[in-house]
Amino acid sequence: MSRPIVPCLWFPDRAEEAMEFYCSIFPNSRILSIERYPDESLDKHFTGMSGKVLNGRFVLDGTTFVCLDGGPVFTFNEAISLTVECADQDEIDHYWTSLSASPEHEQCGWLKDRYGISWQIVPANLAELMTGPAQTQALMGMKRIVIDELVNAG
């Protein structure tokens, strides 16, 4: 029996804040559960982690995620991104404005948020909009995708 794939996000120390932030941006979203690290006096392996998120579960617009506060051992990078397929320019603008926190990392609909996660904010019909070299050239010059500019390219 097939099970859904559930992404796990390793935050250095702000998992609960990130869950609340993402749930405030996406519709049909909510925090499902938070298990916390035990008091560090009970286990020396959890020094400095008392009360932080050991295992968080949340839903963003129907997709379940898990997350944790794992310390600075691992960090996010652009090798993995989360893609939001938008119905129209208003949706693109909403997600772009809400999530973008690092202008130097913006290109072709890609952005990086305040937690270091890379996102692709794209029109759901991007493949249909990319009808030739002029559209590809227009896309490569964009940070936030502007649908009208793709339609009118060429």
Rank of each mutant, 00 (worst) to 15 (best):
S29P: 11
S29L: 14
I31R: 04
S33P: 08
S33L: 14
I34C: 02
E35T: 12
R36F: 06
D39E: 14
E40V: 01
S41T: 08
D43S: 15
M49F: 10
V53T: 05
L54C: 10
N55S: 11
R57P: 00
R57S: 07
R57D: 13
F58D: 02
V59T: 11
L60V: 10
L60S: 08
L60A: 12
D61Q: 12
G62V: 07
T63Y: 15
T64W: 10
T64L: 15
T64N: 09
T64P: 04
V66T: 15
C67S: 10
P72Q: 03
T75D: 13
T75S: 14
T75F: 02
F76L: 11
F76E: 12
N77E: 09
E78M: 10
A79S: 14
S81L: 07
S81Q: 07
S81T: 09
L82H: 11
T83P: 00
T83C: 14
E85I: 02
E85V: 04
E85D: 08
C86G: 06
C86Q: 04
C86L: 08
A87R: 11
D88I: 13
D88M: 13
D88W: 05
E91A: 10
E91M: 08
I92M: 07
I92P: 00
H94S: 10
W96R: 15
T97N: 12
S102T: 13
S102Y: 09
P103Y: 07
E104G: 09
H105P: 05
E106M: 08
C108P: 10
G109Y: 07
G109P: 04
G109Q: 05
L111D: 02
Y115E: 13
G116H: 07
S118D: 04
S118K: 06
W119S: 01
W119F: 06
I121S: 05
V122E: 00
A124W: 01
A124V: 12
A127N: 07
A127V: 09
L129W: 03
L129P: 01
M130N: 06
G132F: 03
Q135E: 11
Q135P: 00
A138C: 10
G141T: 09
M142F: 06
K143D: 03
R144C: 02
I145R: 00
V146D: 12
I147V: 15
I147M: 06
V151A: 02
V151C: 03
A153F: 01
A153D: 06
